[in-house]
């Protein structure tokens, strides 16, 4: 468990250097907006600075940051005035068409599925790790993961380059 202690700006800078991209990408995967991901990024690290947690290991620190990012993103999504639309300024243009296609497919999934797929495929967490992060049962997550993969596959169906890409990397 983490305890609290003094956190210096230099330490915070180090943590942001190391985990900033991870936090940002997870937030972006959930909110699909650069400005919202910016907000979440700031909140997560401000919270880190204010809480000044101390961890037993880097894995524990990483898990804390992932969990807080998930919670903050969920709070955004469920807040009263959150809008499921992204302004043009917030659009992200992917350099590769296949990434654009995958992003479009991900965008069509519910936020909880996007979170699960992002943690599983991008952060490469195990279902057990995700269960600990989210407080959900492993069996529930496995079912959800299966459904999310199926939905993603259905959306991507017909895009030959992705079909081959998925099968190669499974």
């Amino acid at each position: 468990m983490e305890q609290t202690r003094q956190c210096t700006p230099a330490e915070l800078g180090h943590v942001m250097d190391k985990y900033g991209t991870m936090v940002y990408r997870l937030a972006f995967s959930q909110l699909r907006s650069h400005s919202d991901a910016d907000d979440i990024y700031q909140e997560v690290f401000l919270r880190y600075y204010q809480k000044r947690p101390q961890f037993e290991s880097e894995e524990h620190r990483r898990a804390w940051l992932l969990r807080v990012t998930i919670n903050r993103a969920k709070s955004y999504v469920t807040s009263a005035w959150f809008r499921h639309t992204v302004s043009l300024e917030d659009c992200h243009a992917f350099p590769e068409p296949e990434s654009q296609s995958l992003d479009e497919a991900m965008a069509a999934l519910p936020a909880k599925d996007r979170m699960l797929l992002h943690l599983y495929y991008y952060e490469e967490l195990s279902v057990r790790d995700i269960a600990q992060l989210t407080g959900k049962k492993e069996s529930t997550l496995r079912t959800q993961l299966t459904r999310a993969r199926r939905k993603l596959g259905t959306i991507l169906k017909g895009e030959d380059d992705y079909e081959s890409c998925i099968s190669e990397n499974e």
């Binding site: 992917f94 350099p95 990434s99 995958l102 991008y122 990397n169």
Partner: peptide, 11 residues
């Protein structure tokens, strides 16, 4: 699939 996610997130 992992590679596809990595590539997508790179940018």
């Amino acid at each position: 699939m992992k590679a596809a996610f990595r590539k997508m997130n790179e940018s």
